[in-house]
Amino acid sequence: MGPNYKFSQHKKCEFFPCHKVANEDKFNCLFCYCPLYTLGSKCGGNFVYNEANIKDCSNCLIPHSENGYEYIMSKWELISELATKNK
């Protein structure tokens, strides 16, 4: 199997690209909704908490980047632990 499962793009999406990027051809839509969001401050992304204490990830490109798949998989154990706690 090749690495094609790591990259998906949906240019017909009305939100594409959902973040400003220099090169839309490398914009990865695979993780449209980032699985790291639930990790809060442990996600490692470029986020802020707004005045309503809601995590704002609009300046983060990790899930849409060239190596985003690998980074998210490196955090999968933490995500899995949260899922186990919330059975």
Results as ranks from 00 to 15, higher is better:
L30V: 03
S80A: 15
K11C: 04
L78P: 00
S8R: 13
K85E: 14
K75Q: 15
F47T: 10
K11Q: 09
C60L: 02
F16N: 02
G68K: 00
T38G: 06
A83P: 05
C18V: 10
G2Q: 10
L30D: 07
I54V: 14
N59R: 13
E51G: 07
E14M: 09
M1E: 10
C60M: 01
C57D: 10
P17N: 04
H19D: 06
K42F: 10
Y69V: 02
P35D: 10
I54R: 13
Y37N: 08
Y69E: 00
M1S: 11
N67E: 14
K11A: 05
Y71C: 03
C29T: 04
Y71M: 03
F15P: 03
A22Y: 08
N53E: 07
V48E: 12
L30S: 04
Q9N: 07
S41F: 05
V48I: 15
G45E: 00
K6M: 13
E81S: 15
I72C: 01
P3Y: 11
S41M: 08
G44W: 06
I72P: 00
K87R: 15
K87T: 15
S65M: 08
L61W: 05
G44K: 05
S41N: 12
G68E: 00
C43L: 05
K87A: 15
N59V: 05
K42H: 11
G44L: 05
C18S: 11
L78D: 15
I62R: 01
C32E: 00
E66W: 01
D56Y: 05
C29W: 02
N4V: 11
F31G: 03
H10Y: 11
E66Y: 02
H10R: 05
N4Y: 10
M1G: 12
P3S: 13
V21A: 07
Y69H: 14
N28G: 01
F7Q: 07
A22Q: 12
P35S: 08
N53M: 10
T38W: 04
G44M: 04
S8V: 11
S74L: 10
S80T: 15
Y33C: 06
N86E: 15
L30I: 04
Y33H: 10
